[in-house]
């Protein structure tokens, strides 16, 4: 708008603390760092297994370090948050239709949890065989 002196309000660095939804959003974004950590952790474990029994024992000692245990617990909490929030958002991103009708959001979300349980059960079966 010409000729009018408008005022631009500055945005605080802490814009995301005041509102619950913004806070959850920033935590959800942050959770990807912990997902990355778990991937690194898994790769370290696989590398150790590949190098033999001694290397694997070393890895187990590393994993039992209290600092690593705490990091893993925090990571677990963030992974749970990551899973719940992204599963919850899926129906927004995908317009799923069956027989021409939109599938209710709850059904889309539920199907992801079913998938998660099936895959988890398979993994448990695989390692405990």
């Amino acid at each position: 708008m010409n000729g009018v002196r408008t005022y631009r309000r500055p945005i605080s660095t802490w814009w995301w603390v005041g509102k619950r939804t913004y806070f959850v959003f920033v935590m959800r974004e942050l959770s990807s760092i912990f997902i990355a950590w778990l991937v690194v952790y898994l790769l370290l474990m696989i590398a150790a297994i590949g190098r033999g029994a001694d290397a694997y024992d070393d890895f187990l000692r590393f994993a039992a370090n209290p600092v690593v245990v705490v990091v893993d617990l925090v990571a677990l909490a963030f992974v749970v948050l990551h899973t719940i929030t992204w599963f919850g958002l899926t129906p927004k991103a995908m317009d799923v239709r069956a027989a021409g009708r939109p599938v209710p959001a709850a059904a889309v979300i539920a199907s992801q949890y079913v998938g998660l349980v099936v895959v988890s059960a398979f993994v448990v079966w695989l390692v405990s065989r």
Partner: peptide, 20 residues
């Protein structure tokens, strides 16, 4: 995908859904 646009929309347009 903050999703706040959809939450405040008075007309249930769901802009966040449209964007995704």
């Amino acid at each position: 995908f903050v999703g706040e646009c959809t939450r405040v929309c008075p007309k249930h347009v769901d802009p966040a859904g449209a964007i995704q």
